[in-house]
């Protein structure tokens, strides 16, 4: 009747061209991937090994003391404080504006022309180099807004209150830089909320805002929070936006003030030290670069620990919310 079926053996022929090629390609790809890992390990290893002794010396005094003797000795206390204060202020600006913009884009503007214009603006904002933000910050915030405010409040240009580089303007500039990231992350979090939940709320007689505030936002909070933390940690490491808008070379005073004479509070009109900028100064501006090298490694380590902890917090938070969501 029919011809005998021809069986192909399934055992592999050793060293056939095909199998050699497969093995080689897989090896190449995994090798390249591990090279990246090795690079990061070496990079972090060097920083930890060279930085940690300086950080931990004398009971970690590097973390809370001010720079001394020019920049040759002392710690990064004011720079850590300045970084944290900057990040807090920046979040205060970026989060509400970013979240509200995303809510408008996703929930109200939908596929309308206006949403396309806003989205194009946001995308372009994301592509602007950070140094341009820095220059824009000086021109717009410090000179235009700051001097304008001073004019209104009756301060002279020789003794300005707002019309000078300050942590307020640095935070505002930084907020512009991270705004696109906050918006994109929030949009994703909002879009992940099923349409059926929105319709369920509206079918019960909920207005659009009731639906957003009671169903959509609570559902999106985990995504918004983790996205925001990631964008904040991105901002915490940026130097260019604060270069001209408020970061100080060397400053013994913290940017604080006393509200009612007692409660310590961030003074938004003062200048501040910041870790990233401080590392740049240590590496380029000190009288003897060799002398400050341990401090450079140590400051870098501190900055990395801060940004990594922020990222780590985002991961923990996300896991926590996921667990709670499943219940």
């Amino acid at each position: 009747m029919s011809e005998a079926v021809k069986y192909v053996p399934i055992s592999k022929e050793d060293l056939s061209y095909k199998s050699v090629r497969e093995t080689f390609l897989e090896g190449l790809l995994s090798g390249l991937s591990w090279l990246l890992v090795a690079f990061i390990v070496a990079f972090l290893g060097i920083i930890v090994v060279r930085g940690f002794p300086t950080v931990s010396a004398n009971g970690f005094e590097f973390l809370y003391t001010s720079p001394a003797k020019g920049l040759d000795e002392g710690g990064v206390g004011p720079a850590i404080f300045g970084t944290v204060a900057l990040v807090l202020l920046m979040t205060l600006f970026a989060l509400p504006i970013g979240v509200l913009t995303s809510v408008y884009l996703v929930e109200y503007a939908g596929g309308r022309q206006s949403s396309r214009i806003i989205r194009a603006a946001v995308n372009n904002l994301a592509g602007v180099p950070s140094i341009v933000f820095g220059l824009f910050g000086v021109a717009f915030f410090v000179l235009f807004l700051g001097r304008g405010l001073d004019g209104l409040l009756g301060y002279s240009t020789s003794d300005p209150l707002f019309g000078k580089p300050a942590i307020l303007w640095a935070a505002a500039t930084m907020a512009l830089l991270v705004l696109p990231i906050v918006i994109v992350n929030t949009e994703e979090a909002l879009l992940a909320v099923p349409v059926s939940l929105r319709q369920g709320s509206q079918a019960l007689g909920g207005t659009q805002w009731q639906t957003i505030s009671r169903v959509v936002l609570p559902q999106a909070v985990p995504g918004i929070l983790t996205g925001s933390i990631l964008s904040i940690s991105r901002g915490a490491g940026e130097v260019a936006p604060i270069l001209f808008t408020g970061a100080a070379f060397l400053l013994q005073d913290l940017p604080t003030t006393q509200v009612f004479g007692v409660v310590p509070f961030i003074d938004p009109t003062k200048q501040f030290m910041e870790l990233g900028y401080h590392i740049f100064i240590l590496a380029t501006q000190s009288s003897d670069v060799e002398k400050t090298r341990p401090a450079q490694y140590a400051a870098t380590l501190v900055l990395l620990v801060i940004t990594f902890s922020l990222n780590f917090a985002a991961i923990i938070l996300r896991a926590q919310f996921r667990k709670r969501a499943i219940r």
Binding site: G200, Q202, A203, L204, Q210
Partner: peptide, 28 residues
């Protein structure tokens, strides 16, 4: 929509407690 309620093809409970789900409409 309060007077004309709707039940959808797939159950769409809000991710809240049973109580809060039922109380959602009245609270609005």
């Amino acid at each position: 929509r309060k007077r004309v309620g709707m039940v959808f093809q797939r159950p769409n409970p809000f991710p809240m407690t049973i109580f809060d789900n039922i109380a959602y409409g009245p609270r609005l």
